[in-house]
């Protein structure tokens, strides 16, 4: 009798895991640097993001070169001098969701903690996030701050006043259920 019980339980675990994975290829990540001298903002609309409500995990991958800046020169400098996109083309985040999140439609305030890898450096990141669950869709929103210095991104003294020491990052990923 006992093995049957285990098997049933295992099946239960297995089944929901299939329907609770959501993914998008058009997630959005923005970042802002505000200083009295210059405001810099960039947007990446080709972020690949996945949310697994069953395992309560999230993952995010983006290409640095897909960040679009208002000024081409800023974009060139970002890729060439700061994040070195040729050497480190991707930035990645993998993390877990803590807090109550259900499968029924609604908005859930959660905490996300995980590791952010960019410029070849991995650092832990924690951020409050909002998960909006709808039919076959989960939209994740999060704001957090990163310090370029934490990721070994050196800013020369000459432009130090133009780049904020803390950069605000905004994530918006509208993921749809994976059908298999």
């Amino acid at each position: 009798m006992k093995p049957m019980y285990v098997m049933a339980l295992a099946s239960l675990l297995y089944l929901p895991a299939k329907a609770q994975t959501f993914m998008t290829r058009n997630g959005k990540v923005n970042f802002y640097s505000k200083t009295p001298l210059e405001d810099i903002k960039a947007e990446n609309r080709q972020v690949v993001a996945a949310i697994d409500l069953g395992k309560k995990t999230v993952a995010l991958t983006l290409l640095q070169k897909n960040f679009l800046f208002e000024k081409q020169l800023m974009q060139d400098h970002y890729n060439e001098n700061y994040v070195e996109s040729d050497k480190f083309p991707k930035a990645q985040f993998t993390g877990t969701i803590t807090g109550n999140v259900g499968t029924s439609p609604g908005t859930y305030k959660v905490q996300i903690s995980g590791n952010l890898t960019l410029h070849g450096v991995t650092k832990p990141v924690n951020a409050p996030a909002e998960l909006e669950v709808a039919d076959g869709k989960v939209t994740g929103k999060a704001d957090f701050k990163v310090k370029p210095s934490d990721f070994d991104i050196k800013i020369p003294a000459l432009v130090k006043d133009k780049i904020a020491s803390e950069i605000t990052v905004q994530v918006l990923a509208a993921c749809t259920a994976l059908s298999k």
Partner: peptide
């Protein structure tokens, strides 16, 4: 899933 993300 990771592979799908990497592929994308």
């Amino acid at each position: 899933l990771m592979k799908m993300m990497d592929d994308a």
